[in-house]
Amino acid sequence: MIRFDNVTMVYDKKARPALDSISIEIERGEFAFLVGPSGSGKSTFLRLVLREDRATAGAVYVAGQNVARLSSWRVPRLRRGIGVVFQDFRLLPQKTVFANVAFAMQVIGKNRGVIRETVPEVLKTVGLEGMGHRMPHELSGGEQQRVAIARAVVNRPGILLADEPTGNLDPATSQGIMQLLDRINQNGTTVVMATHDDDIVNSMRKRVVELGSGTIVRDEAKALYTSMMPAVRPRRLGEPAAEERRERVPSPSGAGEEEI
């Protein structure tokens, strides 16, 4: 679903690269944590998937498409297939909960009937049934994040990116949010979550990709926040991680899609 081929991202030529020739594949329907200290390249990773930036070198494939090759008018279509959730929720303060979720459908031209039908459904899935008329400032942080998640998944994207979604929430509320993300994942959505929250990572036992100084220092299935292994053999350039040697999903666009 998401594949990085030797991706390097340099923001400032004098500084070290934000991502240094990383290769990784996240399969369709997978749940992956992206951990690592600040500045390790987590946000850059997410920005490249969304094509907010283009990689300096290497190729980023999302749903089989090389995102750097997309013409600018096709980028919106890419982003419709990706939902995003942030630490700071980013709700529109002057719109109700319903309107905030509906906004994501309005701007891509969904008709009113579909919106009226879908939004309450999605609010129900995130556990906010009947709260559509409330304003964001009347809600707790956890509820606001649920609205943000509802907005991210209302258009049924294949991928959900979450950038520290529990960063502003207490542990109990965070658990609730994680259950929600897990449920979304079980419905087939690929979830990539960047986080610092070790309790959550440890309790979920999902794939953990640890970044450090722009490189992948660890990539383990069903892992914990800190490494279980005493030492990690540094991977050679371009070598896929153990989990990546599984059968690949054939991509619709063949060009530039050769196996490593």
């Binding site: 008018w73 919106p76 982003r79 419709r80 990706i82 701007v107 891509i108 907005r151 991210a152």
Partner: peptide, 17 residues
Amino acid sequence: RRETGIMRLVGASKLVI
């Protein structure tokens, strides 16, 4: 800018924005 930021993220076309 909040609205336009969200519009970009959910994939609104350049025209709509």
